[in-house]
Design a binder for these strands. Sequence first.
RNA 1: GCGCCCGUAGCUCAGCGGAUCAGAGUAUUGGCCUCCGAAGCCAAGGGUCGUGGGUUCGAAUCCCGCCGGGCGCGCCA
Length: 577
Amino acid sequence: MDDPKDILRRILEEGVRRVAPGAGPVEIHLERPKNPAHGDLSCNVAFLLAKALKRSPHDIARQLAEITGEAVIGERIFEWPTVAGGFYNVRQTAGAKNTVVQRALAEGPDFGRGRPARAEHILIEFVSANPTGPLHVGHGRGAAYGASLASLLEFAGHRVTREYYVNDAGRQMDILALSVWLRYLQARGVVVPFPEQGYRGDYVRDIAARLADAHVARYARDPGGLRLSEALADPDRELDRLIDAARMLLGEDWGRLHRFALEEMLADQRADLAEFRTEFDHWFSEQSLYDSGAVARTVAALEERGHVYPKDGALWFRSSAFGDEKDRVLRRENGQYTYFASDIAYHAGKLARGYDRLIDVWGADHHGYVARVKGALAALGLPCEALTVALVQFAVLYRGGQKLAMGKRSGEFVTLRELRREVGNDAARFFYVLRKCDQHLDFDLDLARSESQDNPVYYVQYAHARLCSVFAQWGGDPASLLEAPLEALVHHRELELMQRLAEFPELIASAATELAPHAIAFYLRGLAGTLHSYYNAERILVEDTRLRDARLALCAAVRQTLANGLALLGVRAPEKM
RNA sequence: GCGCCCGUAGCUCAGCGGAUCAGAGUAUUGGCCUCCGAAGCCAAGGGUCGUGGGUUCGAAUCCCGCCGGGCGCGCCA
């Protein structure tokens, strides 16, 4: 069935053509006024036309009402349009409002699903953490945002592919492999130094232990060449020297060790994310871009187009010609490609794979990176506007009113796993998306953990569980509610609930357009609040079976909507709590 | 210094393709369980929407300056 909003929009478009024939196309923007005195749908188009027509908005709106009135009431779901201060207002008939209840019950899990005129095929890349350590709470926000956004876009009617870019090619992986190997040797009683800049977390020892379990002594070597230099003037160079030494000593086993460490880390991240209800369709390897020659080809393509030049022994991309602050290195003096080079190849490849639209979810600390990636795509003659980068700001944890120290250096950082254990997956998912992504997030652990009225997660879940409990008590067949006499729903709180339900499909559409899953969280809190008020004010299981069935139908619609919204956020809709 | 993000009630934040947006939660105060789950509800107080200009019939919302906070400015990834 058609949405009342769409019906009214069509009527108004025709009306505007008659009132202002020369005005050209005007966007008809309909909103739902907060003040019920202004009707159910309101339009400001008269204000937009006032200047061109040199007439007062009130006058235009009045004429619009006269012209469109017949068509409006002809739809049988609206009353005659009214005009207030230049606004064109329409009230839905009492009978029309309850159609949303039937719609929600009939469509069930699909209530709210969008049917866009043009469904896009969207690739959303998120998390993409370095596989050199466990995910921390910053990644958690990216995961929650990306997963919710992906679900939202899919629900809005698009085709969505979720991808994780695995940075398995850089020096950091060598450092991980080295760190694992050194811990492995240490566990065997070999005395070797551990460099300052190696990965020092306990997880490295765990991987080393599993390496020993799986391969026993295979990687044992005489560590003669591993002695640290006395002078640690340049720790970076020292680290490189150790990596080279390890590579020499291990020979072919170095690659094996490297892969082992990578697989261990990925398995850990994958399991962590799966528990967090965040799944990916692809895990895309950066290394594969080198193996396939895509990186070299991409740089060559840039070169052919004349956007590359040599300087100081390195190869530079002229990104300043494409909106970036300055030029960037593609290939270093030592012959190695930069991360930027592989990233260009990666993004060009994404477009080549046929997606209409790319969404990258990045930590806000990478914002300086956006211009150069888009610039490189433009330089390759690719549609860089197809790429949208959503920058997710930092999350700061609070416990007992105190900010938790964070940072990898200090080793104090809280892992996503620890956070999930402490507050649970539901609270974590919900809290993470309770802020729009460009807002800094204060994550209050005490609040998220509290099983009290303070906690917004439980507030929404409780509304769902409460309704389930009513249905359990009733014990009837939910399918019978499709026939419920909805005209019995006349209470102002019932009208308010139906109004909220009618907003749900619109919310999905707008939240998807704005890449704003937080809007769902806010909507759900509002819907739950309206439900709680209703529940406290009115009894649902009343004697009058006619009224009872109508109310049960309304409650079933609300429950369905809560469940649909929570599902998008990756939060459970429990029947009992 | 340059660039991006953010300044809205005591606190944490929605609202930012103009009007019908001064909002929510929390905190404070006072009420509501012999009755479908009180993890709930009802009520009260609380803000010149950082600041100064500009555009407009109309600005929290758009533009510019300033102030304050966060982040970034590697031949790291």
